[in-house]
Simulated assay, not measured.
Amino acid sequence: MSVETPVRVAVSDAHQLRVKSLPSWSPWAAAVAAIAVAFVLIYLTSYGGTVLTGVVAAILFVIFMGIAAAVVEGRRSARNRMATILIYGAFILALLPLVSVAWTLISKGTARLDSNFFLTSMNNIGAFDEKGGAYHAIVGTLEQAGIATLITVPLGIMGAVYIVEYGRGFLANAIRFFVDVMTGIPSIVSGLFVLSFWVFTVTPLFNNGRAGYSGFAAALSLSVLMLPTVVRSTEEMLRLVPGALREGAYALGVSKWKTITSIVLPTAGPGIVTGVMLAVARAAGETAPVLLVAGGLSSINFNVFSGNQSSLSLFVFEQAGVASEFAPGRAWTAALTLVVLVLVLTIAAKLLARRNKLAR
């Protein structure tokens, strides 16, 4: 009985075994072509400027790449390539404002980065004096934001612990609802609340009937703004802690409060720190509450409980409206100082949170 030998199918062209794809230089060629066409159609014909030329070039780049991919790779691969280009484009589009803000702050805010700016105040500084600094505003920002953080963080964390670990029924839902409502209130509303309650009602009882503007009142106003952010962020982080950790602790006979303080909170620590720093960043950049209840001051005042006080955000607001050629430089440098201050605090808090072994 004869056995038939299987017939081999000869492949004449080795390229048929490979999927066709665009060469690696094709995106650069498409980008150059898109820029050239947009430059000719928009810029040279005076239909628009640089911004419109860039927008048209981006649209043409997507079209050129889609056509090239459809011809060479097929329609399915072309759709995938275009989706990838759009995702990268959205990322770049979202990144542009951040880069622009950072570049503007650095380029304009370094003009007054000197010892005089950080070691002097605006006391007795006239419109024609190029000196003067923000030492009093830096002191006010650190004291106000620090006191607001000391007030808000314990209240916010305890409120979130109650909602997640203990709260059930109507009360927990009501607290969550009002926290959500407070998240979107304007900053001037919190300033007016503290102005009417603390400055005009409470402080006259201990100040011979006179209203008491102070940095502490500004800290109270900032804490009203920070509280909902801390509560909501802490609540979400606590919900992400696996239930198995709680159950394991309960199985070993650990009480509920000790499980929360020793297991749940340390595990959610990095996320809680992130939420706290977001709240601190918002509080440090608020102007309206400080203007309403602290009043602002051009000289140094270390006593946060008595007398007017300034802050960096209020200093930027005041200098931006001063009719002096030296005021814009102070405003930009103060804005850069505020951003760097928040950045340093955030990095320090992140480094402290990373030292927690349970959170790794």
Rank of each mutant, 00 (worst) to 15 (best):
F61I: 06
G209L: 03
T259K: 13
L225D: 04
L95K: 08
D129V: 02
T346Y: 03
T5D: 03
R168E: 15
K350Q: 15
L352R: 02
F193P: 07
I125R: 02
T120L: 05
L358H: 09
F118P: 00
P154C: 06
V264I: 14
L336M: 12
V7Q: 15
V339E: 01
A160F: 01
S306I: 00
T201Q: 05
L86F: 04
T261V: 08
A148W: 10
W198N: 11
A334S: 15
A57Q: 07
L345P: 02
V164G: 05
I151V: 14
I42P: 04
H136A: 15
G54S: 10
L352Q: 07
Q309A: 14
L336C: 00
M277Y: 13
L265K: 01
A31E: 05
N80P: 05
T337L: 05
V139K: 01
I260H: 10
R210I: 01
V101R: 12
T201A: 13
F118C: 00
R246S: 12
R8A: 15
V62P: 00
R76E: 07
M65E: 09
V11D: 07
V264D: 11
F315Q: 10
A57T: 05
A294W: 07
V153F: 03
L343W: 01
D13K: 08
A294D: 02
V3Q: 14
G133D: 13
N356F: 12
A127F: 05
A349C: 03
